[in-house]
């Protein structure tokens, strides 16, 4: 059953066309990888799914569980289960990670008509999830992502993902800037969240991440649309041959 359906999506930013009739269907329980050369529109797709306002959708549809995502603000989409793991997570001095997590969880629960978590429930959930990702209590007390290394920021993204329990996880270049050990920690965190009720869209430039997060389907994007789809072996082929073929194909 399709969880995410993107049909003929056209997107512009400041008059520049980035997505050009993109189609994508992701079923429940699946992990889809999106690969492609720089500038093919991968990150734009991630931002448009999350609801970033500067991106103007000029044509097309996005449906999540049969609901029209394009009619929702970013915070509403999050409450519906969309989660974007940012390529460059933001630093917010003065907002403790704990405060941020609690505000986010309870805002989502409130919107869904669920009771807010009690302090003990919240603390327990955070402690368990943080332990698995090697995030210390001291880090949680600091300002959000302030003074965190690249790897710590990415782990913090996965921590948020684990606590917010989204339906659709969109990972934007989560592997960028990570060494192999950090990559494994992050990939393990992502794999723990794989479930029959959850779908994932993993955006990456390199095949390396897909050794650890093994996809069900691999798509290649070029010039704002999906130009080829296949199984996980497609990623290996891209690794061997590069993207040159796709740059030319679309040109």
């Amino acid at each position: 059953m399709p969880m995410l359906e993107i049909k003929n999506l056209h997107v512009e930013i400041e008059g520049k066309k980035i997505l050009n009739g993109l189609d994508l269907t992701v079923n429940k329980g699946q992990v889809h990888a999106i690969m492609g050369p720089n500038g093919s529109g991968k990150s734009t797709l991630a931002y448009v799914l999350a609801g970033k306002e500067e991106y103007e959708v000029t044509e097309g549809e996005i449906w999540l569980d049969g609901e029209n995502l394009l009619e929702m603000e970013a915070d509403e989409r999050a409450a519906k289960g969309v989660f974007l793991a940012f390529q460059y997570p933001m630093e917010i001095p003065g907002v403790a990670t704990m405060t941020f997590l609690r505000t986010a969880i309870n805002a989502q629960r409130k919107r869904r008509g669920e009771p807010e978590l009690t302090t003990p429930q919240f603390m327990k959930a955070v402690r368990e999830a943080a332990d698995k990702l090697g995030i210390s209590q001291e880090m949680l007390r600091r300002g959000l992502n302030v003074g965190f290394s690249g790897g710590e920021k990415k782990r913090n993204e996965i921590l948020q993902m684990a606590l917010l329990e989204p339906r659709l996880c969109v990972l934007d270049e989560t592997d960028s800037g990570l060494d192999i050990d950090a990559l494994k920690v992050v990939a393990d965190g992502v794999n723990r969240l794989r479930s029959p009720d959850r779908a994932m869209v993993v955006i990456t430039h390199y095949q390396r991440l897909l050794n650890y997060i093994v996809p069900d389907v691999v798509h290649v994007m070029s010039h704002g649309r999906v130009v080829r789809s296949g199984g996980k072996e497609l990623a290996l082929e891209l690794e061997a041959n590069g993207y040159a073929q796709y740059r030319e194909e679309a040109a």
């Binding site: 970033k52 603000e73 915070d75 917010i92 941020f100 986010a104 805002a107």
Partner: peptide, 17 residues
């Protein structure tokens, strides 16, 4: 946007900042 992408409504996100 980062705060809103985590489900925090606009006004609350502003307040937090």
């Amino acid at each position: 946007f980062y705060l809103k992408a985590r489900g925090i409504p606009h006004k609350e996100a502003e307040a937090l900042m």
